[in-house]
């Protein structure tokens, strides 16, 4: 089975004729149809002349660059977007919340950031306490 590359969620046919020079780790130069492109690869993000693309490689055997699942339908987790400290939890367990309602306040770099619920639902799990340090991506609260 051949891997398929999705660019921003859709398959794209690669160019037939291009001159490629790897420059350094994560940095490539491509000449195509007389045009010069500077390309950077950073995890699943590929930036071409400053325009960012999200890539996804579908190959069950070897590659899973990005897991597209955002949890099962009807379940959403509030994740910390950065390392920081939980300063306030604005909801209680089993509380009904609306989309856009503030759930947790995380402080990093002297700024307090309110994380909001992406959907209406009920708070089914609170995994942190106030004053906890959290890593980037840590699951804080789950809404169902």
């Amino acid at each position: 089975m051949k891997p398929t590359i999705l660019i921003n969620g859709a398959p794209v046919t690669p160019l037939r004729d291009a001159d490629h020079a790897p420059i350094a780790d994560g940095l490539h130069s491509v000449l195509a149809n007389g045009t010069s492109y500077e390309v950077r690869v950073n995890g699943s993000t590929i930036t071409v002349n400053g325009h960012a693309f999200e890539t996804e490689i579908q190959d069950p055997r070897r590659w899973s660059r990005r897991s597209a699942s955002h949890g099962s339908q009807g379940r959403a987790s509030i994740n910390s977007p950065m390392p920081g400290k939980v300063v306030r939890i604005l909801v209680e367990l089993h509380q009904e919340v609306e989309a856009g309602q503030g759930i947790v306040v995380v402080e990093a770099m002297k700024m307090q950031n309110e994380l909001k619920s992406p959907k209406p639902g009920k708070v089914v799990e609170i995994r942190v306490s106030e004053n906890d340090g959290v890593a980037a991506g840590a699951v804080l609260v789950i809404i169902q």
């Binding site: 794209v12 491509v30 492109y37 071409v48």
Partner: peptide
């Protein structure tokens, strides 16, 4: 044309 460049480098 930029997406075509991205897929190419991704493959590389």
């Amino acid at each position: 044309g930029h997406a075509e460049i991205a897929v190419l480098v991704c493959g590389a």
